[in-house]
């Protein structure tokens, strides 16, 4: 399996670490209600189909969001977390 690092291009999966859903980038405001924090920390969808994952490319130190399909395993693209919306 290969993943596209926004910095290095397509690289072997062994160079990456998967952290989970990309929701982890959407940190609530410090004073957000507990429900928002609960959602942020613990609640995740489990999509069959298109998904956005958070990966770390250790060799170059880039965090990236990977768009892939959990059914077909197709990897369709990625964005650096630093540059993501």
């Amino acid at each position: 399996m290969y993943l596209p690092c926004p910095c290095c291009g397509w690289r072997d999966m062994r160079e990456f670490t998967c952290i989970g859903a990309a929701d982890y980038c959407d940190r609530p405001e410090a004073d957000a209600p507990p429900e928002a924090w609960d959602n942020y920390l613990h609640l995740r969808d489990n999509p069959a189909g298109p998904a956005r994952d958070l990966w770390y490319h250790a060799p170059c130190g880039t965090w990236l969001e990977v768009a892939r399909d959990t059914v077909t395993h197709a990897v369709t693209g990625s964005t650096a977390v630093e540059e993501a919306g």
Binding site: T17, R27, E82
Partner: peptide
């Protein structure tokens, strides 16, 4: 790894 995440995700 954690510090790089915090920097890239929350300290743009």
């Amino acid at each position: 790894q954690h510090l790089e995440f915090v920097q890239q995700a929350f300290c743009r």
